[in-house]
Amino acid sequence: MTTYHLDLGDGRTEALDSVTKLTLVGTPVDIDTYAVGDFKSPVPLWGSVVLTRGEQRHPATTRWAEDVENTDTHQDIVLIADGRRIRLAGAYASTTYHLDEDDDPDAFAISFTDITTDK
């Protein structure tokens, strides 16, 4: 099972329960497949992904995730998947994510302008 962390920079890192629903330029992509793949693109791969928070929460993540659609919060972040670093450029909390009231209330979607991996 892959472990995930969200890194907002400056030591603001938080463990995540899950990372799901990665979409790149409108196409669903499995996050684990992306993390181990060798994706290269001559154009930015914009998209979105759903992050689910764990029990240990960093206050910076709370502030960032709750400030939905605020253009001032766009920033480059890193998702760490079992040591692999996935960089999301221009990321921001785009919406809260609930299919119904039984879904995890700590899941939120982020959008980004480009995605790359450090190998």
Results as ranks from 00 to 15, higher is better:
residue 50 V to Y: 02
residue 13 T to K: 15
residue 102 D to M: 07
residue 28 P to I: 03
residue 81 A to W: 02
residue 1 M to F: 03
residue 69 E to K: 10
residue 21 K to F: 10
residue 62 T to N: 12
residue 36 V to H: 09
residue 70 N to S: 13
residue 86 I to S: 05
residue 81 A to R: 06
residue 33 T to N: 04
residue 81 A to K: 05
residue 26 G to P: 08
residue 94 S to W: 09
residue 37 G to M: 00
residue 96 T to G: 14
residue 52 T to W: 09
residue 42 P to G: 00
residue 21 K to T: 15
residue 12 R to S: 11
residue 77 I to G: 04
residue 67 D to I: 04
residue 84 R to G: 11
residue 21 K to P: 12
residue 113 T to N: 11
residue 6 L to I: 09
residue 118 D to G: 15
residue 44 P to G: 00
residue 40 K to I: 05
residue 51 L to P: 06
residue 82 D to M: 02
residue 23 T to C: 10
residue 19 V to W: 00
residue 105 P to K: 06
residue 24 L to P: 08
residue 63 R to I: 12
residue 79 L to E: 11
residue 113 T to F: 06
residue 20 T to D: 11
residue 25 V to W: 00
residue 9 G to H: 12
residue 117 T to C: 15
residue 85 R to G: 13
residue 37 G to A: 07
residue 62 T to Y: 02
residue 99 L to R: 10
residue 87 R to E: 10
residue 22 L to F: 06
residue 104 D to L: 02
residue 21 K to A: 15
residue 76 D to K: 08
residue 90 G to W: 13
residue 88 L to D: 01
residue 51 L to T: 05
residue 89 A to E: 14
residue 77 I to N: 02
residue 34 Y to L: 01
residue 84 R to V: 14
residue 26 G to F: 00
residue 91 A to L: 04
residue 41 S to K: 00
residue 31 I to K: 09
residue 112 F to L: 06
residue 108 F to W: 15
residue 62 T to A: 11
residue 10 D to R: 13
residue 108 F to N: 10
residue 39 F to Y: 14
residue 17 D to W: 00
residue 104 D to Q: 01
residue 58 H to E: 09
residue 61 T to I: 04
residue 87 R to M: 07
residue 29 V to G: 07
residue 61 T to K: 03
residue 10 D to F: 14
residue 67 D to V: 07
residue 70 N to L: 08
residue 91 A to Y: 08
residue 36 V to W: 06
residue 56 Q to T: 05
residue 25 V to S: 03
residue 72 D to A: 14
residue 74 H to Q: 12
residue 72 D to L: 12
residue 70 N to G: 01
residue 64 W to K: 09
residue 114 D to L: 00
residue 26 G to T: 03
residue 30 D to A: 06
residue 91 A to R: 01
residue 57 R to Q: 13
residue 61 T to A: 12
residue 54 G to H: 03
residue 18 S to D: 11
residue 72 D to F: 11
residue 97 Y to S: 15
residue 92 Y to F: 15
residue 68 V to H: 13
residue 90 G to N: 06
residue 107 A to D: 02
residue 67 D to P: 01
residue 89 A to Q: 15
residue 80 I to L: 14
residue 89 A to G: 09
residue 52 T to V: 08
residue 95 T to F: 08
residue 98 H to K: 08
residue 53 R to C: 04
residue 102 D to P: 01
residue 22 L to V: 05
residue 17 D to P: 00
residue 77 I to T: 01
residue 70 N to F: 11
residue 102 D to T: 11
residue 108 F to S: 12
residue 86 I to T: 07
residue 113 T to D: 13
residue 98 H to V: 02
residue 113 T to R: 10
residue 22 L to Q: 07
residue 63 R to F: 08
residue 100 D to C: 08
residue 69 E to Q: 10
residue 109 A to S: 14
residue 42 P to W: 00
residue 115 I to K: 00
residue 24 L to R: 01
residue 11 G to T: 04
residue 69 E to W: 08
residue 8 L to A: 03
residue 79 L to C: 06
residue 108 F to K: 13
residue 41 S to I: 00
residue 50 V to S: 10
residue 109 A to H: 09
residue 55 E to V: 05
residue 33 T to K: 03
residue 46 W to K: 04
residue 78 V to N: 14
residue 15 A to D: 11
residue 111 S to M: 04
residue 87 R to A: 04
residue 30 D to Y: 03
residue 4 Y to H: 13
residue 52 T to K: 06
residue 64 W to I: 07
residue 14 E to N: 03
residue 46 W to D: 02
residue 101 E to Y: 09
residue 28 P to E: 11
